[in-house]
Amino acid sequence: MKILFSFFTVVVLILLAYAGVNANMHFLFGAVIPYIAVAVFLLGFIYRVLKWGSSPVPFRIPTTCGQQKSLPWIKQNKIENPSSTLGVITRMFLEVFFFRSLFRNLKTQLYEGPRLAYGEAKWLWLAGLAFHWSFLIIFVRHFRFFMQGVPSVIKTIEGLDSFLQVGVPLLYMTDVIILGAVTYLFIRRVFIPQVNYISLAADYFPLFLIFGIAASGVLMRYFFKVHIVGVKELVMGLITFNPVEMQKMQEIGVIFYIHLFLISMLLVYFPFSKLMHMGGVFLSPTRNLANNNRMVRHINPWNYPVKVHTYEEYENEFRDKMKKAGIPVEKES
């Protein structure tokens, strides 16, 4: 049900773009919606990050996966249980670039007895790594449509990606890898019972959407050809706020508008969804805090000034009564 709902949402989006372009709404799908999408993405992203930033973190809550800093002869695990900024930076770097915490992913199985057993489950880590890196390379590679003189870095990345020189236009390795990885990430949600149980439409929808984006891109590059120079002219027109004329928009094939519309939808959906883990990974208190609870005094950020009544003030108030009752006082007057 959740799967079908997500699947048909993406199908409807594709049909929407297809129908729109057939109804000559090129300007809407080729200029208006992309502009709105980029604006929603950037503003929404900033809003979400600032909203997270406004939540106080009262105490250090890093997940610790190794020996903490202790007595000098006990060896500290400086990456898994960092006590310094450098350690935190190393830990964050490995987390962001290599998904170190996913590497520890476990599968749990219940045997007769009952006996619980844990086993390694590295496929999620591998597929996640393949998916994210492919996505990044594809994203960077697309800058050749956004630059007048394309920097050599981007040409180099593209050259490495098409290094195998399979077919014409040259096959990009990342195109194959991302489709395979997304398919695995989907199959995993369907066939592993525990993962299936906790999967929501919000988990399936991005997978279908990203699969649609990658598949439409692959179809456009290798199968249904589009007027690619026209595509770049359209993109350059958009980023210089000088959109190309209608006739040029019509020359580009419909598959391009489907691709563009799905990307626009991804950008719009991004700030409201779990995809915000792109920014969120940097703001995870369980990752980005040093475990220095016992070394540094951390003051609760929501402490307010408490009204205190010191003994001195108390004695001033009740001195006469205390004297009468024979209670000793520190000051006589």
């Binding site: 950037l42 900033i46 600032l50 630059m147 007048q148 002219e233 000088n242």
Partner: peptide, 21 residues
């Protein structure tokens, strides 16, 4: 962090600004 993110994402807009295409 936000400045780096926006600067990278919006780079096509300002890198091509004022250039004759």
């Amino acid at each position: 962090g936000l400045v780096i993110f926006v600067a990278l994402f919006a780079s096509p807009f300002y890198l091509n600004m004022g250039k004759a295409i």
